[in-house]
C-alpha cells in the first residue's frame, strides 16, 4: 500500500488516498480496503460513522494517514481500531 495509491471501501462508497503508510490493514466499514474493491453500502456496526470528503484521518501513533476523496457511510480503521479525524489548524489564505 504505497503512499499516493487510491483505495476503495468494500463496504460503502468511501474512497481514500494513502498519504502515509507504514504497515497494517486499512479497513473501512469493517472490511479491508483495496484499489479494486467495491462496496454495497452496508458497513458493519461500530464502523459506520461515515467519512467526510477532504478530511484527513490518522491513527493515534501517526503511522497511517488517509485523505478521504469520496465520502461514504463506513468509517476508516487500522487493524480494527477506528482512525481519528486530523484537525487542521486553519491559516489565512496566503495566495
Amino acid at each position: 500500500m504505497k503512499p499516493g495509491s487510491r483505495i476503495k471501501s468494500a463496504a460503502c462508497a468511501s474512497e481514500a488516498v494513502v498519504i502515509k503508510y507504514t504497515g497494517g490493514t486499512i479497513e473501512c466499514g469493517g472490511l479491508p480496503m483495496a484499489e479494486d474493491a467495491a462496496g454495497d453500502g452496508t458497513p458493519a456496526a461500530g464502523y459506520d460513522g461515515g467519512t467526510v470528503m477532504g478530511k484527513r484521518y490518522v491513527d493515534a501513533d501517526g503511522t497511517v494517514e488517509l485523505l478521504c476523496v469520496k465520502p461514504g457511510k463506513g468509517s476508516f480503521a487500522l487493524n480494527g481500531v477506528a482512525l481519528l479525524l486530523k484537525e487542521a489548524k486553519p491559516l489565512p489564505a496566503s495566495d
Binding site: P3, G4, I19, G54, R56, A88
Partner: peptide
C-alpha cells in the same frame, strides 16, 4: 514534485472551506 505541492495544499487549505460568495 506532486508530493511537495500536495503537502503544501493539504497542510494549509481546508477542503471546500470557502463560502459560495467568496472569490479571489
Amino acid at each position: 514534485a506532486h508530493s511537495n505541492l500536495v503537502s503544501y495544499i493539504l497542510g494549509t487549505v481546508e477542503f471546500g472551506a470557502a463560502e459560495e460568495d467568496e472569490a479571489t
